[in-house]
Amino acid sequence: MSQLKVLDFSTLLPGPYATMILADMGAAVIRVESPTRPDLLRVTPPMFDGRSYAHLTINRNKRSLALNLKSAQAQGIIHKLIQSYDVLIEQFRPGVMARLGLDYETLKAINPKLIYCSITGYGQTGPYKDKAGHDINYLALSGLASYSGKTDTGPVLSGTQVADLAGGSHHAVMAILAAVIQRQQEGEGSYVDISMLDCAFAMNGMSGAAALATGQDPQLGSEILNGGIFYDYYPTSDGQYLSVGGLEPQFAQRFFTLLEHPEWLMRCTAPAGQQGLLKQDLANLFASHSLQHWLDLFAGTDVCVEPVLSVHQAAQHPQLKHRNMVNQAIAEDGQFIPQIRSPLCPDHVSASAKIGRCLGQDSIDILKQAGIEDGQISSLLANGDLVQHQD
């Protein structure tokens, strides 16, 4: 991965998270950013010295080139850069890159080995291709939201952006790396069209397979894994929560025996949607004692019961600490900022992680390394089409 060179034209979350993964694995990533329309992730609180913690994490290990892509000079610079780059990632609506003279066909003529990845809500084709959308919309249209929740709540919002990250970011990285392998074998680049709706729909997995085959859609709170059986979250007397997941008979038997209700084991074999009374009994029992009481009871046993932790608590969990999942990234002034590290790269790579750069912090260095003459750089700066280190 250390030889892979990536130009990233994306903003906010799906594209930048994808290039964070690539950068963490060693790819050389340059973010090409607008000097006049800053990435909203840069101003998402809370902040560190006026800079967003989210941005500092998601854009770590990348360089920043602030360039006005509407300028003919700037487009020419991208054409020059693309000659030596392997991957381009963009997240504009269909047609925008073509209007800028930076579409796949144009750049492919310059670099036939280019892998060009477009991440959009609905893909490059179809009646929704030009429509705006967000994570919540893709989850809604994909069918995932229709059975994510309980009958008394309706669909619920996830704590993270499932369609953006698991759909857009992760599928983009997988497709790009597959294209890299294909290029090694065939010698040519390719175009990758990532639709977050497509990817979210594909994640229906087991429930989708059953629904398409039987015509019976999964329902809120009625399936094996969405609340239809005792597999669920339960509040304790101190307002904390336990996750109970012992589906397999050997786990369930130990679980009910520890609760001193072995007779409940037979009740957990009832079909999904018919375990309401068992779940109420469990809820009443868990609500009678504190979280620590239940953790002590289940300590050292294999019953698939764990506490619901906050992010900060998760970072302190001995398993995640053992796996070194929190890394201290390096700021320009030598300060260290804790960040969730990539689970895909070795510790020694994470140990040298650098926080996301200021807007245009690397602009002049990047252009000089690309062989752009000083006079052209001065002209771009004078016209406001190039920005160097603007907070």
Rank of each mutant, 00 (worst) to 15 (best):
Q3T: 15
V6L: 05
F9N: 11
I21V: 15
P35S: 03
P38V: 11
P38R: 12
L40W: 00
P45K: 12
R51P: 00
N68E: 12
A72D: 13
I78C: 04
Y85K: 11
F92G: 04
A109N: 09
A109L: 07
K113M: 02
I115M: 10
C117D: 04
S118C: 11
I119G: 06
Y122Q: 08
K129L: 04
D130F: 06
D130A: 12
K131C: 05
A132T: 10
D152P: 01
V156A: 12
L157Q: 10
S158T: 12
T160S: 10
T160H: 10
Q161F: 09
A166E: 02
G168I: 04
I181H: 05
R183G: 07
G189A: 02
D193F: 05
N204S: 05
G205Y: 09
L220H: 05
E223T: 14
I224A: 12
Y233H: 11
Y241K: 05
G246K: 06
Q250G: 02
Q250V: 12
T257F: 00
M266T: 14
Q274N: 13
Q280C: 06
A283N: 15
S290L: 03
Q292R: 12
G300L: 00
G300I: 04
T301D: 05
D302C: 01
D302M: 00
H322A: 14
D333K: 08
Q339D: 01
P346L: 06
H348N: 15
K354N: 05
A382H: 13
